[in-house]
């Protein structure tokens, strides 16, 4: 028996989500009195995993994994689960994590719950708490199969250090050849993505035109934040679809979400409920977003935002 965590690397390094699933796996292994095994690929430095409790790390390096066919990645994780006789497999909710997890579950004939926000409420029966109804509610869901796959919601559990000496083993199961080829990729490398962001600055239709995004960009830049927008803003073509947050767009599970000129429609809020601190800047004191926010300023974004940028620059200069 063991708990298996898939720790995704990107360009050889671990992102925060990888450490979050490892932290979760470590605590779950303690709860179930069993061992934690982490499976990963192409990572050079495994110290961050060791710091979060990964005693054994199975590391894939084979060319077979240099594929865009998710089914091969699923086979890779399943091979690790079988070798380690894993009772629970834990996978993050990044775009790759959410992509591969259902495949792993189907291959293992395991029950799968995504969007899990905490350690199991009980392990026998095995009951987890998950987001449902676009974060408008939680559901306590029992996983009834003997093997289980958990998709952990981003930024829901946090990071816990429990340093260990880790043992890294080469892991090269036989994998087939992918049937999906990548022909091109278009990725903004100099910008923080919504998925990775600790802070998001979002603009709505209140900003009147895509030409007014300069101040949103400035604010995002001082804060090291990702930029986001409401649905109409992307439908109008002011901003790309990839920035749209909400029920039909991205989930923003950040520490700070600053909403500027966004009313706070229920569909938009469904994408930001998982953010810890929400700040609203809006001319209309009746805007529904204020009810969902921690801090609010009633006022004109065109006056407030440039001031905020200026003051934040001073603040950053003083506080480093």
């Amino acid at each position: 028996m063991s708990i298996l965590v898939f720790a995704e690397s990107s360009e050889g390094k671990f992102k925060k989500v990888a450490l979050e699933v490892t932290s979760y796996g470590k605590k779950l292994a303690e709860q179930l009195d069993t061992n934690l095994v982490v499976v990963s690929a192409f990572a050079e430095n495994t110290d961050p995993l060791a710091k979060h409790g990964a005693e054994r790390i199975l590391m894939g390096n084979s060319d077979a994994l240099k594929t865009s066919d998710v089914a091969i990645w699923a086979d890779f994780i399943v091979a690790a689960a079988n070798q380690e006789n894993a009772e629970v497999v834990i996978i993050d909710s990044s775009s790759n994590g959410a992509y591969v997890a259902p495949l792993v579950a189907a291959k293992l004939q395991a029950g799968f719950t995504s969007n899990v926000v905490a350690l199991p409420l009980s392990t026998s029966p095995f009951v987890v708490k998950r987001n449902a109804f676009s974060t408008k509610a939680f559901s306590k869901t029992e996983i009834k199969t003997s093997k289980k796959v958990i998709g952990l919601a981003k930024n829901s559990f946090g990071l816990f250090e429990s340093p260990v000496q880790s043992n890294v083993e080469d892991f090269s199961p036989d994998l087939g050849v992918g049937k999906i080829k990548r022909t091109s990729v278009d990725k903004a490398t100099d910008e923080v993505s919504i998925a990775d962001a600790e802070i998001i600055v979002a603009g709505g239709r209140g900003l009147k035109s895509g030409d007014n995004w300069g101040m949103i960009e400035d604010l995002a830049e001082v804060l090291g934040a990702a930029k986001a927008c409401s649905k109409p803003v992307s439908d109008l073509g002011w901003r790309p679809h990839t920035e749209h947050v909400g029920q039909t767009g991205k989930q923003a599970a950040t520490n700070l979400y600053i909403a500027i000129g966004i009313s706070g429609a229920i569909q938009h809020l469904a994408g930001v409920n998982s953010s810890k601190v929400k700040v609203v800047i809006n001319t209309d004191e009746e805007a529904p977003f204020f009810k969902a926010a921690e801090y609010g300023i009633v006022g004109d974004a065109f006056e407030i935002v440039p001031k905020l940028v200026e003051k934040l620059k001073e603040f950053k200069a003083e506080n480093g």
Binding site: S94, S95, R182, D186, T242
Partner: peptide, 13 residues
Amino acid sequence: REIDGGKEVLETE
């Protein structure tokens, strides 16, 4: 397909 921070184009059958 949308990926974190951008998009990619894939070919398959």
